[in-house]
């Protein structure tokens, strides 16, 4: 891994010194923890680091005007971040000439990759990024319970939500300028941090990621109340894959799962 990090630092320094990018989004070490950082000087590249604890999804910064305004830029990209980049590209949120990935993962460093090359790298080294087994086991365990028990479980969890929207801020897929939860004419989702408003928020937030969630886990990691948001995401991802073969973030241009259709889609639940 240390060789990979060295190569990644060297590439970041090279891109900055050549002026190929104006900004590199990466992670650096402070104390024992790794934090996102933005570097604009080649000399700062030495501070870059990466390991499995880097769960913040840097792609989430790309829609922010202050970051976007400094394109072209490079992003230190774990496989999940790479997938997020491709999802953003499919949804016309980022353009090929604006963003490059310094692709890095458990299997090593993949080099400086344009958006067009990410898919091939992912498919070669990380072809089936599925939720971790431990997570899937928890999903299965909860799914096996009765509806009443599940309702009770989620009621307890959702009641904790303070509506700080840290999950939304951490998620690269949440880039709407006006989130549905902020709409007030009509107000579909109550903004009070309790009851039905919380239920609607959590369920709709998850559903808006259907066919788009790349499983990075940034939302759950960001939640100060410790809500198990990845249970919702994993369940949806699993359903979307099983029913529609959805694997978001492997293609540069993909049709959205919700917003396209096939005559062969399962309709057995419709009587």
């Amino acid at each position: 891994m240390s060789g990979a990090i060295g190569a990644m630092r060297a590439d970041a320094a090279k891109l900055l010194s050549e002026g190929a990018v104006k900004l590199v989004l990466g992670y650096c070490v402070r104390g024992n923890e790794r934090y996102p950082c933005f570097i604009s000087e080649a000399a700062q590249a030495e501070a870059l680091d990466f390991d499995q604890s880097c769960r913040q999804n840097l792609a989430a910064y790309l829609r922010k005007p202050e970051v976007r305004g400094r394109a072209p830029l490079a992003v230190v990209s774990s496989p999940a971040v790479c997938r997020s980049l491709l999802v953003l590209s499919s949804e016309s949120q980022i353009r090929e000439n604006e963003v490059r990935a310094l692709a890095i993962g458990p299997k090593g460093y993949g080099g400086i990759l344009g958006l067009g090359a990410l898919g091939a790298w992912l498919k070669a080294d990380y072809p089936d990024l599925v939720p971790e087994q431990a997570l899937l086991d928890r999903v299965a365990e909860l799914s096996a319970k009765t509806a009443q028990e599940r309702a009770k479980f989620w009621m307890k969890e959702f009641e904790k939500c303070t509506r700080c929207y840290a999950c939304r801020a951490a998620c690269p897929g949440c880039y709407c300028e006006r989130c549905i939860v902020e709409k007030n004419m009509p107000q579909w989702i109550s903004s009070a941090a309790a009851g039905h408003g919380n239920y609607a928020w959590e369920v709709i937030r998850a559903f808006h990621q259907a066919g788009r969630c790349t499983g990075c886990g940034a939302c759950e990691a960001a939640c100060p109340q410790g809500l198990p948001l990845m249970l919702l995401n994993a369940r949806l991802s699993q359903d979307a894959f099983e029913e529609f073969g959805s694997r978001p973030g492997y293609e540069l241009e993909a049709k959205p799962l919700i917003g396209s259709w096939s005559a062969e889609d399962d309709g057995s639940f419709i009587r």
């Binding site: 709407c176 300028e177 959205p256 919700i258 917003g259």
Partner: peptide
Amino acid sequence: LCVHCRACIN
């Protein structure tokens, strides 16, 4: 408000 995710266009 539109952020041009192109869902409607698709």
